[in-house]
Design a protein around this nucleic acid. Structure first.
Lengths: 153, 153
DNA sequence: TAATATTAGTTGACTAGTCAACTAATATGT
DNA sequence: ACATATTAGTTGACTAGTCAACTAATATTA
């Protein structure tokens, strides 16, 4: 019996419980738990990027991105425009409808964040953020470079 | 445009990339990405618990647990036994087939863990573990006590 | 230029996970 | 005891997400 609680277990739990937090709060806009993070990315980080770039950023399969963006387009939250320099690419932009809910949407993330780091000092918040992104980069790098094997660990 | 990278984004990414790491490694046993964490729990933390307890521990819907355990049972990794004190409950136990793969299975998690915390000091590892479990407890408590509202944040 | 390889996106088939409705068993309150 | 409420588990219908096969466009190389 292993006593040490695993890091991946905590990640799994936070992921699922956070989904349960977010889903009812975005569903009032008709946005499901498979779409909210795309709109979040487009609203608060960058829009005008292609589906392929979006898939890489969100670390999801491009098939899922295609369907999620199609849904968001049909619901009027985003529109797609062919890239003038590359006819394969479809760049995605947020619509006025999305901009209208931006503040409310942003509040949702701030609230979730506050719940997650309840009773954390500001040092602890910055620490966990930096450690989490290091973990993310570590596993991402590993997956993208399958040359490595476990003997190198 | 928000510049501060969100905690939940890191969690989402680590979750998905870790799934991509684990899935091909458990599929050699015929175990899919929806089942490995149940077997992990049963092998290394506790077996003999009911599906309901398992669902709560894993923070997944009991319907998913029912199907995942049914699959693991049909594949010979676990068996279910009616609780002698409560005919509603079905307690789940690992089989010899599971015990046989235990070490290999454990190595998989140790390897994933090592990848995640590559270049971390042992202090950083313990720190992120403790901060993650505090985050988990915070969001879990919030979800389980819907009395609270965002004004209390 | 033509042949080939790579990239962006879509679709179909599949697994993962949720939600709601249900059955059966237990607990509770009278 | 009986009526009611709660708990454990199952099933059906649905959404989320992956993988493989495909089309079309671009890049590469001869």
């Amino acid at each position: 019996m292993k006593k040490q609680k695993s890091l991946i277990k905590a990640i799994l739990d936070i992921y699922r419980i956070s989904q349960a937090y977010i889903t009812p709060r975005t569903s009032k806009y008709g946005i499901g738990r498979g779409q909210w993070y795309f709109l979040n990315k487009l609203l608060f980080e960058e829009d005008g990027i292609s589906q392929e770039e979006l898939s890489k950023e969100m670390v999801v399969d491009s098939a899922h991105t295609a369907r999620a963006i199609k849904f968001l387009e049909e619901s009027g939250f985003v529109y797609r425009k062919k890239d003038p320099n590359d006819a394969r690419k479809k760049n995605i932009y947020v619509t006025d409808k999305s901009v209208e809910i931006r503040d409310d949407y942003h509040g949702l993330y701030k609230d979730l964040n506050k719940i997650l780091v309840k009773d954390f000092t500001s040092e602890e918040i910055e620490l966990v953020r930096s450690l989490l992104y290091r973990m993310r980069d570590n596993i991402k790098l590993y997956i993208e470079n399958p040359i490595q094997d476990s003997s190198e660990l």
